[in-house]
Design a protein around this nucleic acid. Structure first.
Lengths: 334, 334
DNA sequence: TCTTAATGTGGTATCATTACCACATTCCGG
DNA sequence: CCGGAATGTGGTAATGATACCACATTAAGA
């Protein structure tokens, strides 16, 4: 039950192993007919070259490590995470790379363990680069030590490659859309800036964009919630109970927007516009039909893997930092 | 930027590379103090052994190939597939294995391509075994050629190792439960036996179990649907419009059961019992509260990986075929 | 005809590691 | 105090593939 090697093929074909290797590599000189013979022999013997030996020899494994923090939060449903995964996989297929799932970092808060494992992974030659999806904030610095061989997905870090959604311009797009529709008083259902780092820049973008469109900038129209549906409902109730209530509500997540829509329905206020961010599957249902910004999760995964593979091929090109635009999906809610 | 090898460590510690190797392997004789010295040197030099070289040398890579057919069907939501994945991953972590994602088989119907890729994977030494999750029926024979190195998950095949849910005994459990509750006329919302191979044995189990409990076996109480919610609603309407309608309905999937519950609500029939199979997240919501059989997806993944690793370690032990029991989850619907 | 270039071919070092063998030293019991 | 076991140690082959070098053969050009 020995494995057939390049030597076996050479022997069977009656040539030297160098010839077989050259046929395999497709470079160097080799007679056309011998090439045919070798190819035929390889097929007949069911020969498959050993990636281990090749990798050892030229330290090039065509393999990416994948460190996927699959999160159990309502903000990032399984559906989305699968999209990221699909994007990564497709990019790898296209570039003929394989993915090694790295089973390490059991305790997501153990920074030291993560640092060690990350270093180990990048040191042993099995993987050329490392894709890190959804890492908790605390672990991100761990990867900063290896720029050029690591790419983050759905996260950002200045000195690393990454692919992330451009929440700021998405917010701008929503405000612009509502402004064009004639709304002048906009409310914002925000996430807690303490708990989510993207909440602050989004809020800034909201304010900045209001100014850009010459709209009123009223701190009382911003409500701090927690990204959940119940929080959206509560926030909407609060905003609409103000003396001068908003005519349109921007929710930081679809879940909040759905909560807000529920509040509207209960209050009997059909005319208030609501927009969200995410495009969860629920948003497309006819009962909800939410106007929202679609997060490009598939593209995040794809471009991160693609970018990492490219920059591994030509190091020195610098980091690949993709801020992917979100897509405005207009439905009935605004 | 050369990698530090076992030779570098040996040189730095002033011993031969054999000593370092023995320390690494933990076998053979080596002086306690030298061992300490070597260990210290390894730490200081940040040495990590090369799995490639080791794998090449002793053809033992501690890696499993994963071929995951992530399906886009309502019957098997992302949530479940993630559970399988988590189970596989946990087993691998526990046994110190890694997972190589194999990017092949793009066209799920191309049996020849699948066969070639499968053979290639098992031939090149990168992976010791192959986990195949949710393969389409047409591809299953491809893997039969390599028993002992392949395990199926959520599928069955007589001459392969597998982990699957025991649908038959789940059906028995549901009938027994309803019988104990005093129901004597049971309806079955079945899947199409043509399209799903598990529909037929489930139906047989249903009939057989009716007999076992001395209940009426009436072919008109079996309705053929397609596993979807709408189909469940339609089927329930049909069964309840019979002259002698059932007092309890067994649905082949939770989706069908949910459809049946909707039919009951619309018809104003609150007393008819409904049970499903799956335990989808929706089933636990208070509005639905469905009594159902939970599919052990996590355990399927875990036990398949665990079994495969074990049987790789001791070949000749025969196949590992796990039929995992489903768990009855009693809620309000029955 | 004689150089120079193009086309082929086979041998060998190399990659990082481990298993095995040969050899050295210590230790202990008779 | 001597033989053999126990404890250590270093050298080397082997794993499968590729790059490079040296060498052979042919072709072409002057």
């Amino acid at each position: 039950m020995k494995t057939t090697t390049i030597v076996d093929v050479a022997k069977a074909a009656g040539v030297s192993l160098s010839v077989v290797s050259r046929v395999l590599m497709g470079r160097g000189y080799v007679q056309a007919e011998k090439k045919e013979l070798v190819l035929k022999t390889m097929r007949e013997m069911d020969y498959h070259p050993s990636p281990l030996a090749k990798g050892l020899r030229d330290s090039h494994t065509n393999t990416l490590g994948l460190l996927f923090f699959w999160l159990h939060t309502p903000f990032l449903p399984d559906y989305y995470q699968r999209e990221i995964f699909a994007g990564v996989l497709d990019a790898c297929v296209a570039r003929n790379y394989q993915l090694l799932i790295n089973n390490f970092v059991r305790d997501l808060t153990d920074v030291e363990a993560a640092r060690f494992d990350c270093k180990r992974m990048l040191k042993d030659q099995r993987v050329e680069g490392l894709l890190v999806v959804n890492p908790p904030e605390a672990l991100i610095p761990v990867f900063s030590g290896s720029p050029g061989r690591v790419a983050l997905v759905n996260r950002r870090e200045e000195n690393l490659s990454y692919s992330d959604a451009d929440h700021v311009s998405a917010m701008r797009g929503l405000v612009a859309y509502l402004a064009k529709k004639g709304h002048v008083r906009l409310g914002l259902l925000s996430g807690d800036p303490e708990r989510d780092s993207s909440a602050r820049p989004r809020r800034q973008a909201f304010n900045q964009c209001l100014r850009a469109h010459g709209l009123a900038e009223d701190p009382s129209l911003i409500w701090d919630g927690n990204f959940l549906e119940s929080s959206g409902e509560e926030g909407a109730r609060h905003l609409l109970s103000l003396q001068d209530p908003p005519t349109a509500i921007v929710a930081s997540t679809d879940l909040m927007a759905i909560g807000a829509l529920r509040a509207l329905r209960k209050l009997g206020l059909a005319k208030v516009a609501v927009v969200g961010i995410d495009d969860v599957p629920l948003a497309a249902t006819p009962e909800i039909s939410l106007t929202t910004m679609r997060q490009p999760f598939y593209e995040m995964g794809r471009s991160a893997a693609e970018g990492l593979i490219s920059s591994l091929a030509s190091p020195g090109d610098g980091l690949v930092q993709n801020l992917l635009p979100m897509e405005l999906i207009v439905r009935n809610s605004a």
